[in-house]
Amino acid sequence: MDINRERLIGMLKTMYKIRLFEERAKKLYKAGMMAGNFLGALHSYIGQEAIAVGACSCLKKDDYVVSTHRGHGHAIAKGGDIKRILAELQGKETGYSRGRGGSMHLFDLKIGLLGGNGIVGAGLPIAIGAAFSSQYKKTSQVTVCFFGDGAATQGTFHESLNIASLWKLPVVFICENNLYAVTTPASETIATPNVGERASAYGIPGKVIDGNDVLLVSATVEEAVKRTRTGKGPTLIECRTYRWDPHCFVITETRPKEEIEEWKAKDPIPRFERKLVEEKIINQEEIERMKSEVIKEMDAAEKFAQESPLPSVETFKEEVCAK
């Protein structure tokens, strides 16, 4: 492995952060629902951690990330503050979007996080704009645009890849193909066997990779980032993966049990962990310590979110009326 030890351990820790964050968010969401406090739709990233972590491990703080409705993982991997993410999920004033956006709309310009999106496929043209900005200002920033297999069937996919290629924009398109658009299998929505090979239609490099292999994701994105940072234009990377939970927690599971179990066996976290232990980069004791640190962080975030105030209706009305 030619990545340094610190980065590898950081990647593992971030994968745990995402996993444990999603578990905590799910627990709080379900408890809220039981108590009659329904807080929108919650889209879990569990199962896809290797993609956000592998990709964001190649980015600098000021690089941009355009996220999706399933965006907690992207926000955490880009360096988002777990306290403020959880507070946003609870509709609190201390949340990233001050309770105006919720789970699908996490923004933090300071770390280049340009928001999730409630509209599937809407992020692609926005990513073009962010990449255009960097090119225009001659900075070396790159934009990573995450989207799903569902977004790959929107017209914006075509418009955006065409322009990105024409203008050689510094953008990397990462299609997280988790095989289902809500409940409809990708085989029924995508006419060809994969999304990655569409790159040839735009004259850009395209890859189809195992999205549960964090090292492969990071190596592939690294190459694409290097390429685009030096003005050679975009790359399309399709990462094959699977989400463990239904589309969101108000949608009934329709996928076959065996299929879900099959993919759970390909869990990206133990797979990476085993590799790191084999290569003596980390030992079991250090892993346990890491996990308990992450759990402590989650406890602190939960406490922060719960103790944070809800937004003030009066202030909100004043703000709205001022416009």
């Binding site: 941009y64 355009v66 310009l109 340009l114 809407a122 692609l124 043209p125 926005i126 990513a127 073009i128 704009g129 962010a130 990449a131 255009f132 900005s133 960097s134 225009y136 200002k137 914006t156 418009e159 955006s160 322009i163």
Partner: peptide, 11 residues
């Protein structure tokens, strides 16, 4: 969309 992304990032 390009205008939106560019506006968000300072143009």
């Amino acid at each position: 969309g390009t205008a939106v992304g560019a506006a968000m990032t300072g143009l």
